[in-house]
Amino acid sequence: MDLNTIWFILIGVLLAGYAVLDGFDLGVGALHLFTDNDLDRRIMINSIGPVWDGNEVWLVTGGGALFAAFPEVYATAFSGFYIALMLLLVMLIFRAVAIEFRSKRPDPGWRKMWDISFAVSSIVSSILIGVALGNIAMGIPLDADYEFAGSFLGLLRPYPILVGLTTVALFMMHGNIYVVMKTEGDLQEKARGWIKYTIGLFMSLYLIVTVWTLIGGEDLKHMTDTIYANPWLFVVPAITLLAILNVPRELHHGREGRAFIFSCVSVVGLLALFGIGMFPNLIYSWPNPEHSLNIINAASSQKTLTIMGIIALIGMPIVIAYTISIYWVFRGKVVLDEMSY
């Protein structure tokens, strides 16, 4: 396998890491207003308290790796999605400070303000990430210099918006399972009650996106070419679907940890499907597919890809090892103490 392909996969791994990890804490944020008392909300925030900013590092590192391995993609996408990205940054800022600031004062007005800020920023961040992915899949207009030739409003098309909504629903489902796993008593019962809705919502949207992708226009055809050409790849959507369907069963048997693992598998499966559809393109150009950015014309030099590979090879196993250890330290149900948010 050549370095360019390896880096395509590694960027995918970083994004999958981000989606699995920050996915559940964005989901917890999106569900935040579903509970109305302060204690429940505190428990929900503290369920992600120790880990959320480590989770966000996957996005930061993914961004850095994209910059280093495929600078053309980083430059084109980030300048092309200018307004959307600025909004995403604002949302991520509000999320971070909402988590940090909320607990600092007991005043209900203060807490309500940060509760709303936390929920809205989580929902909007998820939508924006989904809309961006939907646009990249559907193709955006690029000129011969690979510069984005469209407008912000032009990005708000039905298909990408649908992908955005599906992303929120996915994270809400994922976060919901996480909350069930991390809580007990009344709150856990409440969260269990949401499960059928969050799974139902996600499954419905997922079905619509899938059908749309399959029968959609010329601009989406490239997303299914690879999988039709290599039918064994149908194992990926099959596993994804089975993983999701298995979640209610695991929960029914009280195996919350396993339910969460299956939810993680489904998130990874969905991103894998996206990656399979996109490969070897990183940004699909429409209506001029010949201007697409792919793993060859967007990449850094082989030397840099090698150096980055060494950095990843040294760094990531250590990162994964201590990340697992840290999750292990914070395993079990949330218990509030005086250091909690």
Partner: peptide, 11 residues
């Protein structure tokens, strides 16, 4: 330049 930023994330 990107390599340095990526290394910052990883390390």
């Amino acid at each position: 330049f990107g390599s340095a930023l990526a290394a910052e994330g990883v390390f």
